[in-house]
Design a protein around this nucleic acid. Sequence first.
DNA 1: TTGTGTTTTATTGCCTCC
DNA 2: GGAGGCAATAAAACACAA
Length: 291
Amino acid sequence: MEEGRGVKRPFFTSPDDLLEEEYYDEQLPEKKRRLTPEQVHLLEKSFEEENKLEPERKTELARKLGLQPRQVAVWFQNRRARWKTKTLERDFDRLKASFDALRADHDALLQDNHRLRSQVVTLTEKMQEKEAPGPAGGAAMDASEQLQPPEDQAKASVDAEEQMAAAEAFDEALLLQQVKAEDRLSTGSGAGSAVLDADALLAVVDSSVESYSYFPPGGAADEYHHDCVMGGAGGIQSEEDDGAGSDEGCSYLPDDDAGVLFGAGHGHHHAEDEEEDGGQISWWMWNWSTS
DNA sequence: TTGTGTTTTATTGCCTCC
DNA sequence: GGAGGCAATAAAACACAA
């Protein structure tokens, strides 16, 4: 049947077509008409230049396209909505990938922490045996330890204590951040809704990494801060050019917000984002991150 | 041809700004 | 208070598999 498909009836294709449109209006009043590719092309071009529409530009565009100013305004409205959706999806993908990487690193740190703790326990036991020397105690020392100079043994002992202290500090920091995050979740601005402040969510991981002195200054932790910065200067690009050079750089994440994830800026949300989503991670993001 | 999913155009209601 | 923006939604137009 293809009702209405073979015959395209664009809305006011040009001022000259207005007479013809009257025919359609008689036949099918109140029907939606798709814009012609030419109209869409010009609107897209205009949108790329500036995604907001001043009154003069609106009337000028409407005149050029043979549309009503209201239609031009509506088109821009819908186009902004599409752009925002697309950008949010892209930002989500990036955040998810970055968070996964960070979480994997965090897990590795936990494992390392566990290993170091075991090592400290072993060394402590051996020291205790050594401090209370008996016939059995002396014999317990293995060959490698007997070969180790006394000063090296003392250094190993100090290292073990430092590692233990670092591990405990790490645990405390982790616990503190978790408590903070939970507090913010339960008393947060979401007023009971299942949303979590991005800072709270990510600070748990972030501060755990930073408070644990595993990374030297300028080391791996800093690389996370700098290399994974996403988003960029705003800018409008057509969503049709999804390939190279598409919406890159027009992320809805302002530069500062990359720091939210990695703790660099402990970023404040961009004013627009505060307005858009209340400065909170959307519920679906929270659900994902806690799943 | 039909059913269904997606996209596009348009409306409504609320909010913010001047 | 009016203008303009946005989110949510409706509905027409369109695409496509069966």
